[in-house]
């Protein structure tokens, strides 16, 4: 089932306010774009310490890298072969040329992206979806000046997450219904594959609209109106939380400026 990999545990990282964790991940992603090997090493060590503090099994953390590996592998090869510079010993071999710069840049960039994925995974593994949406809602409060309510944005995110498993089930039902009527959902040719896809996507889209109508009616019946509302939990930042946020921002500014 679709759960963003949240693992419920008692740990100082799990207990931290979701806003702090969101800010930290955003700050980290900006920071590592600005640093070299040494900075990256420190950032990776920090991520490792946080993961250990959160008592996340390292194996499951590494597993989250699995789906992105082919993409990053390709990225690495692109950097490796297409960065001009001093050739490594033994090169060029025929038309192939690998430069010192290419090798360093490839390792550095791929490492940065891997670290980003790891950071995001630590966030989603230590923060439940509802905490994430609440954190998002509060961090987005300033967008009120644009006329958009952060409550509405949070509602949309949370509905999307809420209906994800429901729609997965529905897709499976439609697939079985099409198979039962003799549909070939995995034809050999590309054009056929696209047509087969539409046989799943169209009924799914129609169902989503129907669900939407009912959902809107039910939400209205329960008094939903755009704009302000309250929640089961209130997020409260302690003094040390504020210090932590200030520290993160200070670090971010230092890295960008230097």
């Amino acid at each position: 089932m679709y759960k963003l990999g949240y693992i419920f545990l008692e740990s100082p990282v799990h207990k931290k306010d979701p806003r702090i964790k969101l800010i930290a991940v955003i700050a980290l992603s900006i920071i590592i774009l600005h640093v070299g090997f040494v900075g990256l090493l420190i950032a990776s060590a920090a991520a490792l310490v946080i993961a250990l503090l959160a008592r996340i099994p390292l194996g499951s953390l590494l597993r989250t890298l699995h789906p992105v590996l082919p993409f990053f592998g390709l990225l690495f090869l692109l950097y490796l072969f297409f960065t001009p510079g001093r050739p490594l010993p033994l090169f060029p071999i025929g038309p192939l040329l690998i430069s010192h710069e290419g090798l360093t840049l490839g390792v550095l960039q791929v490492w940065k992206f891997l670290l980003l994925v790891v950071a995001a995974s630590i966030l989603t593994m230590t923060t439940s979806q509802s905490e994430l949406t609440m954190g998002l809602e509060q961090l987005l409060r300033p967008i009120r000046i644009t006329g958009v309510s952060s409550h509405d944005v949070a509602m949309m995110v949370s509905l999307a997450l809420r209906f994800m498993p429901t729609l997965m089930d529905e897709l499976e039902l439609i697939r079985q219904a099409q198979l039962a009527r003799g549909a070939n959902l995995n034809p050999p040719r590309m054009s056929g594959k696209i047509r087969a896809m539409s046989h799943l996507a169209v009924p799914l889209a129609v169902n989503i609209f129907r669900r939407c109508d009912e959902l809107i009616e039910a939400m209205e019946a329960r008094g939903y109106q755009q704009g302000h509302r309250t929640y089961l939990r209130e997020l409260v930042l302690s003094r040390s939380d504020y210090c932590l946020i200030a520290g993160i921002l200070l670090l971010l500014i230092t890295v960008i400026v230097t």
């Binding site: 439940s128 509802s130 809420r162 009912e214 039910a218 329960r222």
Partner: peptide, 13 residues
């Protein structure tokens, strides 16, 4: 008001 299809009335995660 409660509707026939409970699944489409549940909004919380």
């Amino acid at each position: 008001m409660a509707f026939q299809n409970a699944d489409n009335q549940i909004v919380g995660m």
